[in-house]
């Protein structure tokens, strides 16, 4: 399962990142990172603030393009296809579900929040939308709480509910890959645990990139874990190795054991 293991990464790699460099103006945010993400794994991504984790996710769904003055070098391949050559960038974004750190309920009803992406993709049939909304809210463990008030505003839900709404919304376009960026930062511990359970069941259906500020969360959920520091990928390995007494890098050991960060 080691990332340096060439034969392991050949056909099961969903995402292949090669020598990825990202700059905001003159400021480097990722200084040439390479790694693969395998089918149906949860890849934990840990690292202190400003290490480039969010930037990495924005490169993968190409929303970094909305930030002016950014330059991206190197390549990111999704199922073998270089994402920079994909012409249907909106379709690309729908192949990836994105959950942001702070829950963002759109100022629409709960139903319309989840139906937003299917509608923008052109689905009009009421029964089809109903089915998607129910399935995604079920998957995000929110259905029972909101099924009687789907017309209520999504922005009026509690923070924890809104974060699950965000997850339901990210699942609404049936992504192959789900990216979560520090989803638990504004969520209570009970909701965090519920979402972690959700992720464990989703793992069988999709590949998950879990950026997390809680190293223990990566330990609980991730098959493999990548440690980022100041725009460098310090180490990527099975979670057991990263959290063991002897990962390859001293910095990994120090961070995982709370010496800094």
């Amino acid at each position: 399962m080691n990332s340096n293991n060439q034969n392991g990464s050949q056909n099961s790699a969903v995402i292949e990142v090669t020598d990825l460099k990202v700059r905001y103006g003159d400021k480097s945010a990722l200084n040439g990172v390479s790694f693969d993400v395998y089918q149906n794994e949860i890849l934990g991504i840990i690292g202190p603030v400003q290490s480039g984790k969010t930037t990495l996710l924005k490169v993968i769904n190409r929303t970094l393009e909305f930030t002016p003055n950014t330059t991206v070098e190197g390549s990111v391949k999704l199922n073998g296809e270089d994402i920079s050559t994909i012409s249907d960038v909106y379709g690309l974004r729908r192949r990836i579900g994105m959950v942001q750190p702070l829950p963002v309920g759109l100022p629409l009803s709960i139903y319309d929040n989840v139906a937003f992406a299917p509608r923008t993709a052109g689905i009009r049939s009421k029964s089809e939308l109903d089915e998607i909304v129910e399935r995604c809210l079920q998957q995000a463990a929110l259905w029972e709480e909101v099924k009687d008030r789907l017309k209520a505003l999504g922005t009026k839900l509690s923070g924890g509910q809104q974060q699950r709404l965000t997850i339901a919304r990210a699942l609404s376009h049936q992504p192959d890959i789900l990216c979560l960026d520090e989803f638990s930062i504004a969520v209570d511990p009970v909701t965090t645990m519920r979402i972690e359970e959700v992720l464990k069941t989703l793992r069988t259906k999709m590949t998950i990139l879990l950026v997390t500020n809680l190293v223990q969360q990566a330990k609980r959920l991730a098959n493999r874990t990548a440690f980022f520091l100041n725009g460098d990928l310090i180490e990527i390995d099975t979670t057991d190795v990263i959290f063991s007494e002897n990962p390859s890098e001293q910095a990994t050991y120090d961070y995982v054991n709370g010496a800094f960060g």
């Binding site: 100022p107 937003f116 919304r169």
Partner: peptide
């Protein structure tokens, strides 16, 4: 953050403007 959420869902700028920005 509303605009970013829409873009993450694969909405074009125009869809974002029409469904979220202008109504609000």
């Amino acid at each position: 953050s509303f605009r970013e959420a829409c873009w993450n869902l694969g909405a074009t700028r125009w869809q974002t403007i029409r469904r979220i920005v202008i109504p609000n």
